[in-house]
């Protein structure tokens, strides 16, 4: 673990140089402990794969004091302190090539049938390691190795919001229209980011996400219900 100043208002705490469930769990556990203990001077925290960025008020706490307080919490930063994850179900339409633009090409690249690809993608829980890049965009890890795939050679300049996509060992769901270099397998009719909602982002770091395959008719029905404010996502 190393502490590095990130300007005069933040400190970056880097745990390891790797992407793993174990390291990311420690990052989120450390964040949870900092928030739970209400450490003096902490303004906000941003978890990522293997680091935690802590914003602080230098009028309320010194750098050395803050680092010492965080270091003292670190031994307890294990999965044991984290509350049980929320289980979130995201309906996803894979079957319509208009939505799952790259499903066929990704299946060919992976040497799978599209049905097998969908079965593997819906068959596991994906953990939200953190939210970043655009508002509400989850970095999801947990895919079986069979689905690990190099990123697209040429990123798209515009990916529609709701696109469910894979690249490397990760899956993500684009939350707003943005550029993107992942293979788009399908689309969820849910809004990962909705500025009009009281809580604009659907997912939180640590959530466990499963995808449920839906057909185009159900996609359209859910999308209409979401537009009408009449759809409640399945969160347990």
């Amino acid at each position: 673990m190393r502490f590095r100043p990130a300007g005069d208002l933040a400190v970056s705490i880097e745990l390891e140089e790797e992407i793993s469930a174990e390291v990311n769990t420690r990052v989120r556990a450390l964040e949870f402990l900092i928030q739970q203990k209400g450490l003096t001077g902490v303004v906000e925290t941003v978890p990522s794969y293997r680091a935690l960025l802590v914003y602080y008020d230098p009028d309320a706490v010194g750098y050395a004091g803050l680092c010492a307080a965080i270091e003292a919490l670190y031994p307890q930063a294990t999965t044991a302190v984290l509350p049980p994850p929320r289980e979130v179900e995201l309906p996803c339409c894979y079957e319509d090539p208009e939505l799952g633009i790259d499903l066929g090409a990704a299946a060919v690249r992976l040497g799978l049938s599209t049905a097998e690809l969908v079965r593997l993608h819906t068959g596991v829980g994906h953990v939200v390691y953190f939210i970043g890049f655009t508002p509400g965009l989850p970095y999801l890890v947990g895919m079986p190795e069979r689905l690990h795939i190099p990123r697209l050679d040429t990123p798209r300049t515009k990916v529609p919001p709701g696109s469910v996509a894979i690249g490397g060992q990760q899956c993500c769901v684009y939350s707003v229209e943005s550029p993107g270099g992942f293979w788009i397998l399908g689309r969820t009719p849910l809004r990962l980011y909705d500025p009009a909602a009281g809580e604009p982002t659907l997912l939180r770091p640590g959530d466990r996400v499963t995808f449920r395959a839906i057909d185009r008719a159900e996609f359209d029905a859910i999308a209409a219900a979401v537009d009408a404010g009449a759809f409640t996502p399945v969160i347990a």
Binding site: G7, A10, S48, A51, G132, Y139
Partner: peptide, 27 residues
């Protein structure tokens, strides 16, 4: 490995040119 970007972070991309990230930055 992607991590949090502080206010004022001077990100240096592949061509060696800096971008200073500000109030509406990506997290």
């Amino acid at each position: 490995i992607s991590d949090g970007i502080p206010l004022g972070g001077v990100q240096v991309v592949g061509d060696g040119q800096p971008i200073v990230l500000l109030v509406d930055r990506q997290s």
